[in-house]
Nucleic acid binder design. Structure first.
Length: 810
RNA sequence: GCGGAUAUGGCGGAAUUGGCAGACGCGUUGGACUUAGAAUCCAAUGGGCAACCGUGCAGGUUCAAGUCCUGUUAUCCGCACCA
């Protein structure tokens, strides 16, 4: 077969007959199968795309043949930094390069033969899309879920620009090499923390990989503890958060993060110089370096003291950057005896260490950080762990100095980007009225084309006079637009909703259309999105639900991560490694179907692994064998009379039904490699049967027919062609996927492994109907068994029906 | 440091969840067809001459362990001073 020609032929035919589109009139149960959309950075599809989309398409086609009304859309996550960096390097405008890349990729995605519903295509950089991304921002703003605050960012003083974390290499600017500093800038945030608890508990009912759910759990990082207020002698109140309030009598000092709002206020004149120097020092360390636990602890004394509300003790107040401003209250009570970090700090700065917890039944070695028996804490002495924490928290609350409190590690989502190639933030800044949202009727806020995006210190849009200057929608006075754009993760947080109603000009999506298709039944994509995209999308869904636009809680019911195909050398494919394998040459030589089959067969889908093309020829041979036998059997004439149905026919029928049964299970489970293996076994069985002198032609024809149907989801063009050649009605995908006949899977007799004292002695065919005693008797009668059991008595006999019999003798 | 995953022939990978380890395929070897090769087809293929030994390593539970338990090593991934 000339696969390239055949593929084109059927692709055209499928498009012409709208075979790939979701059937809006059908009343078959819907099934929304979604692959994470592509980012059009390179011009071509790489192996990763094929690996993500090919096998998943086979799953979608399989479900379609099972009778589901399948919706499988595709689109492009088209905004983003790479296109902008490419523009800075080459001068090609991001819009131009992106559109060109999209056009190429569309062609390639079509050539793959996946049944993408192109009528629902979405491109996030299109005005008709980002208009609604901006609309989303406005709804979140209205709901109080979008707000502005000052936050630290990575700032390169030489380029005069904010850098993304990925652009900071060893605390230096990736581009110019200058040292990056932390700087506070006013930025827009989404209040994802408002949903922390639901994002956490919602995970339990999702059919997602456990690993991914755990990553999200850790990311959200719920921790239950106690907030306690310490009074500073200046009159200020310092709130600290602790999970170990049972150690509160062991507090020997207080630590504030260097960015804490009280840091300078609490500093005494004698300490001022040292404190300012320290704050400056801490601001230079970037976040990643700060968080390194191997880093030696540093800090400075403020000169002030605070009072422990439980024992009235006066303790010094320090600043240290091992305390994070962004977590809890940005201040901690230090208990060096029972916390490793405090212990290290106290040791270095010669601060007192007071033991207030004793190890149960053993020597207490400091720092002792496990639960233990409280001591030196007056009325709480003798209490243990949780019991002690409950009692002390109750006391704290009685004193009016705090109480139990839950904290999350999750932080609000910073969505402002000082970049060009993204959706402009729909906000106008007015001197009189402040930050004013753009009225919905004025959307979209268009991203201008003629912008100087080369970095020279300001947000690219800030230099565009025409864009920036506008009027305040409230007072009508002169005002400026927000010069920032939205993080591209905002665009991808709702695209799966837009697919359902991709061309709606009045709304982001029609409620009815979304109710019809959502949630996504099966979502397939890389594991690298575990804590970003997948969390943000869940947040959007919940927020939209609470605003009344949706009525489900979770966007993705089932989630599957494909593995990663590495370079032949075992490293991640990258230009710098020089190990990039392009799918194109293989597709050209063997065809899309062969390439897809090989990707399915050669790897465990969720594991991936190093690329090797060792087996691709075998796939071509396999397809060849299928074609040959199919055409050969097609030309057999059906005899008039009755056809034989003996042992050989039973065996073939068993192989056929076994393959059917396993294909159904394996495809459902994304176990593509074993599914293809089952097809190969069936082909082998057909060949074997065909080699017989006398054969049942009708059975053989039926079996070949089933083989083509079974294969159709995995090799769609190839199967469609064979189906056509065998006189089948267009399209093979309108046929039902075969279902096994359970009767054909019941064998008259089964092969048993016969063991004596748990060692295999021989094998024996035993009737399926035999009872345990019969099986035991049969086993004992075997000569190999008699040899081993001669002169011994059988103490026990274990029978595993249909598999094994084990005689214990002694 | 914490958390998770993985470890099976020369290779990619299977194993009805505790029941014949190595399905399927690659590779290799032998054979057939061919002037020859390619392609194709047939056969063999975990190791060992054998008794036997074999699922990273050391123990354990069990009639029976790749699978369960304890410990350990290596690799990969995620988080990383979260009080």
């Amino acid at each position: 077969m000339d696969m390239n020609k055949i593929e084109k032929k059927w692709q055209d035919q499928w498009a012409k007959t709208h075979l790939n589109e979701f059937d809006k009139r059908s009343d078959a149960p819907k099934l929304y199968v979604l692959e994470m959309f592509s980012y059009p950075s390179g011009a071509k599809l790489h192996i990763g795309h094929w690996y993500n989309y090919g096998p998943t398409d086979s799953y979608a086609r399989f479900k379609r043949m099972q009778g589901y009304n399948v919706f499988q859309p595709m689109g492009f996550d088209a905004f983003g930094l790479p296109a902008e960096n490419y523009a800075i390097k080459t001068g090609v405008h991001p819009k131009d390069s992106t559109e060109k890349n999209i056009a190429t990729m569309e062609g390639q995605l079509q050539a793959m033969g996946a049944m993408f519903d192109w009528s629902a295509e979405v491109k996030t950089c299109g005005e008709d899309y980002y208009k609604w991304t901006q609309w989303m921002f406005l709804q979140l703003y209205k709901k109080g879920l979008a707000y502005r605050k000052e936050a630290p960012v990575n700032w390169c003083p030489s380029c005069q620009t904010v850098l993304a974390n990925e652009q900071v290499v060893e605390n230096r600017c990736e581009r110019c090499g200058s040292e990056v500093v932390r700087k506070n800038l006013t930025q827009w945030f989404f209040k994802i923390t408002e949903y922390a608890e639901e994002l956490l508990t919602g995970l339990d009912k999702l059919d997602w990989p456990e690993k991914t759910k755990n990553m999200q759990r850790n990311w959200i990082g719920k921790s239950t503890g106690c907030e306690i207020e310490f009074d500073a002698e200046s009159g200020d109140k310092i709130k600290v958060f602790t999970t170990r309030c049972d150690t509160v009598f062991g507090v020997t000092y207080i630590v504030l993060a260097p960015e804490h709002s009280l840091a300078l206020k609490l500093t005494t004149p004698e300490q001022e110089e040292a404190v300012r120097a320290y704050i400056d020092y801490a601001s230079k360390a970037n976040e990643i370096e700060r968080l390194s636990s191997t880093r030696e602890k540093t800090g400075v004394f403020t000169g002030s003291y605070a009072v422990n509300p439980l024992n009235g003790k006066r303790v010094p107040i320090y600043l240290a950057d091992y305390v994070l401003a962004s977590y809890g209250t940005g201040a901690v009570m230090a208990v060096p005896a029972h916390d490793e970090r405090d212990f290290a700090f106290a040791t270095k700065y010669h601060l007192p260490i007071e033991k207030v917890i004793e190890k149960k039944g053993g020597e207490t070695e400091l720092p002792f950080t496990e639960d233990g028996i409280v001591s030196g804490s007056v009325e709480f002495d003798g209490l243990f762990g949780e019991e002690a924490r409950d009692a002390i928290a109750a006391k704290v609350s009685k004193l009016g100095k705090g109480g139990k409190k839950v904290n999350y590690r999750l932080r609000d989502w910073l969505v402002s980007r000082q970049r060009y190639w993204g959706a402009p933030i729909p906000v106008i800044h007015c001197e009189k009225c402040g930050a004013v949202p753009v009225p919905e009727k004025d959307l979209p806020v268009r991203l201008p084309y003629d912008v100087e995006f080369r970095p020279d210190g300001k947000s690219p849009l800030a230099k565009h006079e025409k864009f920036m200057n506008t009027v305040c929608p409230v007072c009508g006075g002169a005002a400026k637009r927000d010069p920032d754009t939205l993080d591209t993760f905002v665009c991808s947080s709702w695209y799966y909703l837009r697919y359902a109603d991709a061309h709606n000009e009045k709304l982001p999506f029609d409620r009815e259309a979304v109710d019809r298709l959502l949630p996504v039944d099966t979502y397939v994509g890389g594991a690298e999105h575990a804590c970003m995209h997948l969390l943000y999308a869940r947040f959007f869904t919940k927020a939209l639900r609470d605003m009344g636009y949706l009525d489900f809680d979770e966007p993705f019911k089932r989630l599957v991560h494909q593995g990663v195909i590495l370079g032949p050398d075992g490293n991640r494919m990258s230009k710098s490694h020089g190990n990039v394998v392009s799918p194109d040459e293989y597709v050209k030589e063997y065809g899309a179907d062969a390439f897809r089959l090989y990707l399915m067969f050669g790897f465990s889908y969720t594991e991936g692994g190093p690329w090797s093309d060792d087996g691709i020829k075998a796939i071509a041979r396999f397809m060849d064998r299928v074609e040959k036998i199919a055409l050969k059997v097609r030309d057999y004439k059906l005899p008039r009379g009755e056809e034989p149905f003996g042992q050989e026919e039973k065996a073939l029928n068993y192989a056929r039904n076994f393959a059917i049964s396993r294909m159904n299970k394996d495809l459902e489970a994304f176990s593509f490699n074993t599914a293809i293996a089952r097809l190969m076994e069936l082909v082998n069985a057909i060949y074997k049967y065909d080699g017989l002198e006398k054969k049942n032609i009708a059975l053989l024809k039926d079996t070949v027919r089933d083989l083509i149907l079974l294969m159709a989801p995995c090799a769609p063009h190839f199967a469609e062609e064979l189906w056509h050649l065998l006189g089948g009605k267009y399209s093979v995908f309108e046929e039902r996927y075969p279902k096994e006949d359970p009767a054909a899977l019941v064998l008259d007799e089964k092969e048993y492994a016969v063991q004596v004292n748990s060692k295999i002695v021989c094998k024996a065919m035993i009737a399926s109907s035999a009872g345990n005693e019969e099986i035991e008797a049969r086993a004992l009668s075997l000569p190999e068994v008699q040899e081993k059991t001669a002169g011994k008595t059988v103490k026990k006999c274990i029978v595993v029906p249909g598999r094994l019999v084990n005689l214990i003798v002694g």
